[in-house]
Structures are given as C-alpha cells and as structure tokens.
Design a binder for these strands. Sequence first.
DNA 1: AGGTGTAAACATT
DNA 2: AATGTTTACACCT
Length: 449
Amino acid sequence: MATNNFQNARQRFGDSPLHDQEIRASESPFYTRGSCSFLLDNLQQSQQDHYYMSEQGSSFHGLLRQDSPLSPDMNSFGLGGPNYSNTSHGGYYSGYTNNQNADVFYTGTSGTTACPRNHQQSYSPKMIQGLGLSDPSLQCQLRDTDQNLRTGNSGGYYRRQVSMSRTPSLPDAASCKAEDDAEDDVASNTEESKIGEPYAKLIHRALMGAPSHSMALQEIYQWFIDNTEKGSSAGSGWRNSIRHNLSMNAAFCKTDRTIASPSDAPAKKTSEWVLADWAIADGVTPTTRYRKTTSKKSARPDSHGAMNASRQNAGKKGGSMAGRTKTLRMTQGRSLGFDGQALRARDAERDREARRERRRYHQLRTMATPPQEDSEQRPFSPTTPTAAAGMNVANPYYFKDSSFEGMDVAVYDMGHVQGVYTGDDGPVFTHNGLPSFDGEGLWPGMHGH
DNA sequence: AGGTGTAAACATT
DNA sequence: AATGTTTACACCT
C-alpha cells in the first residue's frame, strides 16, 4: 500500500504539480514529521520542478516536492546523507528536515530496522552533481543555530543538513558563467579558483545561498566545514579569519535579531550576518574597510619569518584605539558601503562576476516575488520578530507547537526550523500549521534519548 | 601598493 | 567562552 501511495504521488507529481491541499488530502498518511529516508542515487528529476525518489528494493519510497510561498525565488530542498556502510540494515537512511520549500513524503523504511542517529552525516553538495545543482552559488545552507530547538526538542540529537537550491526556469550558473566568459573573452578559472578562493568570497557565497542571505556565525563555520578546504583544516585559525573578514568587510553586516518569547520571558537575542544589499547584487568587495594606511613597511626586511620582534609592542593591537574607532563608526552608520563601492569595479574580473551575479539575482527576483515582502527593504532576515509578530495560525506556513511550552522559544516560522532534526518527540510541521499525526518515526526505539 | 591570510590583543556579549 | 574589532605583518601579485 505504501508503494501504491508513492506511485500515486509520483505519478501525479510527475504529470502535474499538485497544490498543498490536494497533496495533504491524498497523501496525508505519509505527510508526517520532517524526516524521511531516501537513497540519493535514485533521486531523479521528473520534471523541471520536481524530484522524486525512485524505489529501491522494497524498502523505500519517497517524494520531494518543491514549491513554497515562502521563498518562491529559491526552490530548495534538503538532502540528508545516506550511509551505506554503517547502517545496521546495510541500507541507507537519512533524517530529513523540512526546508522551507520542501514537502516530504515518505513511506518509511523497510521493516522496523532503525538507523542510529549518530551515524547520520551531512551530505556534501558536490556529491549531488547528478542533480545539476553542483554549482556552489545555487546551494542553500540550512540553518541550524537554534539552540533552543536543538537541545529542547531533539533530545540532544541534532544533525545539520545540507540543502540544495535550484531555480528551475533559470539558466544555471554554469551557463551564465560560460556566457560571460565568452563575452569577455577571458579564460575561465574553474578549478583553481575554488581552492584559493578568498574568505570574503566564500562567505559571500555562503550568505548568498542562505535564506535571506543571512547566517549566524556558527552557520558560516559549518558551511566552511562542509564546503571548503579551509573548514577542514586543523586549527581554528580559519575561524578567526572568518570573523576577521566579517568584521572588516563592508559587505557583511551584523544584525541583532531578538527572538521574542511566547510567554514574555526574557527576550533572547542572537546575531546574524547578512549581506549588504549592494553586496547581494554586486558581490563582495575587497576586505579593506578598516585598513588604514598602516605603514606596511617591513620594519625588518632581513630574514622573513621573524615576527616575534615586531610583536614586541603587541599591546597596542586592538586596544584603546579599537574602542574609539568603534564608537565613531557606530555613530556614523555602518554599511554605507562607500569604501566598498569605491574600491569595486576596477578589477575586470570582479566586474564580470558582479554582472553575472547581478543578472542572476535579477532573474531570481523577477521570476517571483515573496508575498510577505512589501516594498520596504528588509535588512534583516525574516526570522526577526517582525515576521514572527505577523504570523498567525491562519498562515499555513507558520506553526506553533505545544512542545515549545515553557521554553524560551518564540513562535517560529519555517525559516527557523530548517536543518533542525527534531527527533521523534519534536514538533511536527505541516502546511496547515497543525501537528500531524504522531506516526511511527524513522528510528523507533530511539526514544530513550 | 594593495589584497589577502594569519596571528594576536583587546572588547563586547 | 564565544563573538566581534582592530592592529600588525608576511606574502603574494
């Protein structure tokens, strides 16, 4: 019967997209919590807008659908990671989280075999090239920073996931790039550039792929771990560099987001890094915001590598000057982008890239406009209370779950829960804002945690 | 000369 | 302790 349902869904999805209501009505038994198992190798593209999982053996059937009023310009869906070797049933598994654009249908795994959650692993985007989503700029990182959700609802188990984004009706980034390269008659640097890609660009890419172009620091860390070589290097110097770049580059703006509490508990505030508007359109600029004309004179031009002597007056670093310039900067306003824009545009390669991204961004923007977004520019992510305040139960994409009672968690929209595996006891998300039935989870027997 | 990475000091949360 | 700011300097174009 499971197969039938899946085949039903697949057939119907393959032929004509369904709307939420129809789907829920027809497939509700399988529309449960945000978890599913699937085998990525069998992920197939049925139409431009739909992917589905083909059947594998007798164990799995699943379906992914992409469309959402939350972010119509960025169809995305989450992918978990199969693990072929360590599962007790020798199969595959993955938790799946509700991305803002993905609906998941699954019919469960075969039998009652459970996969230990601690075997889960995130999936590297480059492993999904069969989907044609390998271009990094099309990647979308799930958010995983909601500590409240994580510790409060997942029983300590939590796994971040990688999600991919695609814009079906648009030319992909590769063709865009090829086009531009042809226009400018410039050799492309495909492989090499990825290795030595500077921090600023990497951060920019990460943020471009993120919902609302904003990420928390931890998310950026994780993105580097998943997508860059730097992130897999040993020490923590790369973290320092990330922070350094975030602070130094005008393209990255820090936004304080306060999470209102449902029961007027102390409001929590975290911070996010968001791309400046001009950076969204034009890309990153050199990281020179605060770099003054420090006489870079090599005070000791003798043998290089002797930095110790020059560090003798290290007490001056940061220090008193730091505080002064900071307050000054704060009063002046921050992300005006003066220096950035001035510094931009002379580099030809950078210019091309900017155009390319601008074009793609324009296409993204024009193909669909987020419904809840009014004319005013919103510098913050939709996870700010402004979005939360306006949410109501009538909006099917917002939810409130009783399991949050007593927790320092506000009413969240789907943007908050992306990437959060809530565990068997976690909240259940559905499009109508109602908790779905508490069917059997993917990992029965794991309730003890 | 300027961009970048890295280390580090200091500041803030 | 994590996060954010800033200085300093080497290295590379």
